[in-house]
Design a protein around this nucleic acid. Sequence first.
DNA 1: TTCATATTTCGACAAATATAGAAATATAGG
DNA 2: CCTATATTTCTATATTTGTCGAAATATGAA
Lengths: 113, 113
Amino acid sequence: MKPAVAALGALAQDTRLSIFRALVRAHSSNEGEGGLAAGEIGETLSVAPATLSFHLKELAHAGLVNSRREGRSIVYKADVAAMKALMDYLLKDCCRGTCGEAIDATPNRKEYA
Amino acid sequence: MKPAVAALGALAQDTRLSIFRALVRAHSSNEGEGGLAAGEIGETLSVAPATLSFHLKELAHAGLVNSRREGRSIVYKADVAAMKALMDYLLKDCCRGTCGEAIDATPNRKEYA
DNA sequence: TTCATATTTCGACAAATATAGAAATATAGG
DNA sequence: CCTATATTTCTATATTTGTCGAAATATGAA
């Protein structure tokens, strides 16, 4: 499977998209900093441990998150570079190259919540 | 389900992503122009009629394509505005707002084929 | 070592997805 | 009206996905 399809599939699920968005919010550009422990994510989003682990593995397998152990916790962190690569791909190949330009100026544009 | 998740799910499949990309290539900004007949898509991508119909319905249900009848054919067309909305959402909420800026200048960036 | 905490893996299951042959529907042309 | 073409719907089937209780693993603390 193409990596872009894997990344899209990883984000195409309510719980996983919420997880990823939470990780992006908690992101830090510094190595070894930022991110959220699995437990924190599960508590915030009310997801059972086994279910959460399943979704985190999906995101990791798609290359959108990575993890490090910190004491008893495992801290997950969004891979912003991977997300950039996905955006770049979509922009170039799936959008006629127009999606990056003047989005806010487009009349009658649709918007997702 | 959130519309963004629906759109991501529609694109998160090899055949459907190929269909959508073909439709973007064949796009025209003019109303009632551009797009590809279902048969053309099926022939180009070697997808059986029933399978193709299934995938086109998925894309249409997610709002990423629309269609018009033209004689015996049904012509499908990418909804570029919907794709823009998806990109906008991802850019704002899933990327720390950095994915639209200087993508090509980013060192060691990842890239999807 | 023993105990508590944090997370993953295992096993089972229901639901959703992808595929495609066959039948049904819609349109155009003779 | 009859026939050919284009596409969808129906039906069935195999595969994948999402969920979660229970057991296993890893770490830190007493």
